[in-house]
Design a protein around this nucleic acid. Structure first.
Lengths: 242, 242
DNA sequence: TTGGCGCAAGTGTGATCACAATTTTGCACA
DNA sequence: TGTGCAAAATTGTGATCACACTTGCGCCAA
């Protein structure tokens, strides 16, 4: 059964349980999706998730309703069952376009707002990205890359855009994991992060926007190529769930 | 009590009750928000909405959870109570930027996909918009303007963008109603729709994009001016709910 | 009349049960 | 070894109750 680990037993210091339970549940599932720990097409269930997380089905219902609204999960129209949306070119194209607008926009807004403290953390995150690439560790790469990007996005102070970016990552996550798992991490771009940090440091908004756009374009192109290659050799099959 | 009419008793032909109840509830509330029938800052409650709609609180909970995810409603962090988000310049700026990207994009995608049938309906919608402007009927204007825009967006065949646009309208609706109610409909742009239809007809994607961008820019600028003017004369007050 | 205080009403959240619809299982039959 | 088909398990949805918490109203005293 439990293919995906989602437990929330630990819960840190135990004291911080101020947040509503369904929020914590949401965070767990969202994180799992962004990290790609739940594959596209995978079907899930309220009671199943509830059991994995060690909570009752009620908070899961609320969390899942939210994830459905964000298109991170979908309710199949035929049998009304829950699953992670599958991969297809049409959707990936839209996700790529959307990412290439919002995220450079966020990056540009962040320019000039980066303290030395933040710059330092960005360098750390980037170092972690490099290390993960060197080791070929897909999970570590996705985690540290996410940290890098969202550290920047948070600087922008634009909640609406931030949430849009987050929603997009939620949808791209499962795709990304499959693609990288299929082709390894060797081809991933590594130059843009350095440029981005430099531009951020000198407050050059347009340069930040440009390198962010380039970074995303390369990543999404890679995914698109991989998807097309895969679809070419296995057109419509894709049976079996698990 | 019931300041806002939301009843769903009629339910059309009665036969189409295939959709889940929470979807119908969602549609009702969403429509009310887009039409601006629920003012910014207005606080609502699950049981209150349930009673207005003649359903139990359960489906309302699911609908509201979805609306919160779309930022069409918010859960106040202080007292954990539900309300329609208030107006402020920061948020309106982001909404304007987002609209000015997604909606021209959708319009461009729709270019060349418009059948004669659709063009005819667009002319009808535009006529209704003009009529509403002439009469100064804000409700009719908002309804027919929405019909006009979303008839186009639907053509694009880009579900992700379509939903993004819908989410943005959900957030802008309450603002718009207040602004127009405050300044009347006389200043609203009316030229762009004609250009847009013409460009749509000859399949000129860039022209469609441009006129859509102009249409939205004018509308949002108007709202921004009105908001600034209002904030200038009544800085931080805004007491009393109702 | 005005201030303060306590209780009733209203709030969102979580748990649990019921139910119709679907999927999966299991077993008899060929 | 396959093949139907019915029983059992699982699914999302809705209703209802309980609970901790906040708000608001009204009463009493000064």
């Amino acid at each position: 059964m439990a293919v995906v680990r989602l437990d929330m037993a630990a819960e840190g210091a135990g004291a911080g349980a101020d947040a509503r339970m369904h929020d914590q549940v949401y965070d767990r599932i969202a994180e799992a999706l962004i990290q790609g720990r739940i594959p596209p097409g995978k079907s899930v269930s309220l009671r199943g998730l509830a059991q994995d997380l060690g909570v009752s089905p009620m908070p899961v219902r609320e969390a899942v309703r939210r994830l459905i609204a964000e298109r991170a999960l979908e309710l199949q129209s035929v049998n009304k069952r829950l699953r992670v949306p599958g991969l297809n070119e049409h959707r990936l194209t839209q996700l790529a376009k959307a990412r290439q607008w919002v995220e450079p926009e966020l990056a540009a807004l962040a320019a000039g707002r980066a303290s030395k403290e933040v710059i330092r953390r960005l360098r750390d995150d980037d170092a972690a990205v490099m290390a993960a690439l060197a080791k070929g560790d897909v999970s570590a790469y996705m985690q540290s890359n996410q940290d890098f990007h969202f550290s920047i996005y948070q600087l922008a102070g634009a909640e609406l855009f931030y949430d849009m970016a987050r929603t997009l990552w939620l949808q791209v996550g499962p795709f990304m994991r499959v693609v990288f798992g299929r082709m390894g991490t060797v081809h991933l771009p590594r130059d843009h992060h350095q440029d981005m940090i430099a531009a951020l440091e000198r407050g050059d908004a347009e340069a930040v926007r440009a390198s962010m756009a380039a970074d995303i374009a390369e990543g999404m192109d890679l995914m698109m190529d991989a998807l097309r290659a895969h679809d070419a050799e296995a057109p419509v099959k894709r049976r079996g769930r698990k």
